[in-house]
């Protein structure tokens, strides 16, 4: 009987392990990138985050909002860690609508670090109208909102291709190998040398895609570094306490004849 139970346990384990893979078929699996923020102690590449912000600001932000981020986040630890002066300058480079003032009028003023990222459009409907009916999703948590996460975002950014023969595309629709259904309404906005990086890095499409994806990964999980750091400490602590409690338990149960 014991043998039977054991083999069943094995079947259960195999079943569990095989649960994940079988999902939808009409998209290519995303490219696996060895991100620095992967793994138990992963951290963000600061330079890449800063470059990624530049890509966001110069390319993405004309269509995509990031309403849950504030300029102050750019200076917080675990993020791009721009200096306080840089954050102030970045914030001030945006026109923020504020008010109403004492006359009841709305007015614009230079942004402050406490302001949230300025959206390119006043609302979802306006954003959709300006983009051929397709709402460019808010990018604050985009990496968490897509199956495949950072790998998927990166893959879509570099996945533009000419459509294979037989596939016809409507006006304003593009072919992308990694997009679900292979059709995307966002044009390929990246081309080699598009951006003059402040740190002098050569802006290849691949480089820009990686940088902006890193930036978006941070935007979605600004707590990631702190989470990893705390996690390692917590696990070490728990292992230590578990060992002590285990020894205590052995000690206590040694008073009677039963094995624990």
């Amino acid at each position: 009987m014991k043998k039977f139970n054991l083999s069943i346990n094995k079947i259960i384990i195999v079943l569990f392990l095989s649960i994940k893979p079988l999902y939808s078929a009409e998209m290519t699996d995303p490219i696996k990138v060895d991100w620095s923020f992967k793994g138990l102690t992963g951290t963000f590449d600061r330079a890449s985050l800063q470059r990624g912000f530049q890509v966001y600001k110069e390319v993405c932000s004309s269509c995509h909002s990031m309403q849950y981020l504030s300029y102050r986040n750019l200076g917080e630890s675990g993020g791009p860690e721009f200096s306080e002066a840089e954050v102030k300058a970045i914030a001030a480079s945006f026109e923020v609508t504020d008010g109403p003032d004492s006359q009841g009028e709305m007015f614009t003023r230079p942004g402050r670090p406490s302001d949230t990222f300025v959206s390119p459009h006043p609302n979802k409907e306006a954003a959709a109208a300006a983009n051929g009916g397709a709402y460019p999703p808010d990018m604050s948590v985009l990496v968490k909102a897509r199956k495949g996460g950072a790998n998927y975002i990166y893959s879509v950014l570099v996945g533009y291709e000419d459509p294979p023969p037989g596939v016809t595309l409507d006006q304003g629709v593009y072919y992308n190998k990694y997009m679900i259904g292979n059709k995307i309404k966002m044009p390929n906005n990246l081309e080699d040398g598009l951006i003059e990086y402040a740190d002098g890095t050569v802006s290849t499409v691949d480089q820009m895609a990686k940088d902006v994806t890193t930036f978006l990964a941070w935007a979605a999980e600004p707590e990631l570094e702190e989470r990893h750091r705390t996690g390692v400490k917590v696990i070490i602590y728990l292992l230590l306490l578990t060992t002590l409690v285990y020894l205590s338990m052995k000690k206590i149960w040694s008073r009677i004849d039963t094995e624990v």
Partner: peptide
């Protein structure tokens, strides 16, 4: 109590693993 405490700690290690290292794996990205 001590046996429960030991088992609870082992459970908490798994719990902490999810919370700190794969907090969204059990949820749905949508």
């Amino acid at each position: 109590t001590i046996k429960d405490a030991f088992a609870l700690l082992v459970f908490m290690i798994i719990f902490a693993g999810f919370v700190f290292f794969t907090p969204n794996v059990l949820g749905h990205s949508d």
